[in-house]
Each structure stands twice: as C-alpha cells, then as structure tokens.
Design a protein around this nucleic acid. Sequence first.
DNA 1: TGCGCCCATGATAGTGGTTTTCATCTAGGG
DNA 2: CCCTAGATGAAAACCACTATCATGGGCGCA
Lengths: 131, 131
Amino acid sequence: MTAPRALRATKQRAAVSDLLDRLADFRSAQEIHEELRRQGEGIGLTTVYRTLQTLADGGEVDVLRSAGGEAVYRRCESSAHHHHVVCRRCGAAEEIDAPMVESWAQEVAEKHGFSEISHTVEIFGVCRACT
Amino acid sequence: MTAPRALRATKQRAAVSDLLDRLADFRSAQEIHEELRRQGEGIGLTTVYRTLQTLADGGEVDVLRSAGGEAVYRRCESSAHHHHVVCRRCGAAEEIDAPMVESWAQEVAEKHGFSEISHTVEIFGVCRACT
DNA sequence: TGCGCCCATGATAGTGGTTTTCATCTAGGG
DNA sequence: CCCTAGATGAAAACCACTATCATGGGCGCA
C-alpha cells in the first residue's frame, strides 16, 4: 500500500478539523473562517474553503444548503449515509437514520422511471435550547 | 373584504406565469428570462426574479435548489404540500406525496425536542428520456 | 540533519447568481 | 382623463465561492 493519500499535515488543516470536532452545529465556510481568525489562527478564507471541500469529498464532513442557499458544514459521527434534524436558529443538528425512507425513495423513483437515484431528506425545526 | 392583494396585472407577470404553465421542468430564473426574451417578450431579468419571488411567496410555484446551489422554479399542480422526483439532467419533475414521510418527519423531530418543524425531501435521478 | 521537490497556502482578482437602487413608466381607481 | 402607488428594468452593488499565481513549508530522501 503506497499510500495514495497525498495530503500534507498542515497547521491550517488541523485547525479546521479541530474546530469541526468542537462544533455540533452546521456552519458556513465564512463562519468557520471568522471563528478561526478570532482564535488567532492564521488562516486564509481560500484555505478554509479548500479544506472543507476536501473533507467533504472524503466524506468526513456533511454538507447541506441553508435556506439562503449557502453551503454549511458539520463533522458527522457516522460515516454511513444518514440525515439530520437541524435547528434553523443555531444550526445545531442531530443525526438520524431512516431505513424506511431510503427504501421508499428508491421505490418511488423507480416507479416513475428514474435511475441513478439520490435524495435529500433534512428536517428543520427549532431546538429546545432556542425555543 | 378590501382586497389586500395589491398586485397589478402586467404583461410581464402574465408572460412569466404563462411560461411556467407550459413547462414541466424546474428552471432557473436566468433560463426563464432567456426563454422569454427568445419569445420576443420585453422583460428584464430583475422583473423575472421579482415575479418568481412573488409567486413563490404566494405558494404558486415550487422552489428548490439545484446541486450548484441556484434556485430553480416550477409551477406545481397541487397547492398542497408535496415533494418531487427531479431529473438532474433536464430538470423534469413529477410530484409525489408521501403521507408516511410527513408523519415520520414530525415524529422524529419531536423525539429530538424540535418544534416548528418543516422538512425538505427531494429525490433526484435521471429520467427515462435522459437515460 | 540538511536539501530540495512539490504540494499547500493565501492575497487578489474573477465569476456567477441574486438583490438593490433609482429614475421612469403604467395600471387602474376616482 | 388624471393622478398616484405600485411595477419595471438597466446598472451597480452584493455575496458566496473559485481561479490565479507567487511564496512558503511538509516530508521524503540522502
């Protein structure tokens, strides 16, 4: 195994990863950048975007779109396919899995003649803390 | 009832609405603008955006976000709450309703202490015509 | 430990979708 | 027919995100 992974261990990548570990909320790239700067990390916005992109591609973080259309990121516990209940006030999220919804989606799509199926299922609400 | 509706009947609004009636696909504001210009309608991009926004607010059209994050619009048959199976190639969509998913979402959210619940459920695939 | 290759970084400029601004136009009630 | 509040649209602002490219710093190797 000649590690095909060409990722280099940099301070910036670690900083983003560490911050994600400490957050339980979906956050935008800009918010993450701002927070890291506040903590005194020297990191550029470009790098934050790039790092989040990389993490997302590797399935290490979940990405979804906020109501405003901007991408928000969060470290997920499980690397398996799952969905979220997200607080629309603070972004806090809990993971859920829904086997029955998975099969339902597959079935419905096939019935309509669609193939190569994917789906988005997210539940939004206001969490206990924000009520 | 002193009609609170302050909407004026203009040629532009009618043009957008008519075009939406003839389309079965989710289309972006830009695409709709382009199509109207092609048909010789004198309409500005600004107005297209504004009109779609208004229609969406009034629940007359469905809005969702394409993979790239841009907003796409479509006239919906049913004004009731429903979801879609959308072709990621051409935007063609069919409406589906999923009572069991509705109640499932409600139940899951409550179990996690969330209130004022809403949800997004969209199924993406490739339609028969695009295969 | 030191060298050097090459990936990573980040300031800056660019891109593309959407909104705001504001001067002008017009639907439609009086 | 006139007047006015709402509608229009060209241009500019906005904002999230991406591309560019010169510089910096891991890390493999000697």
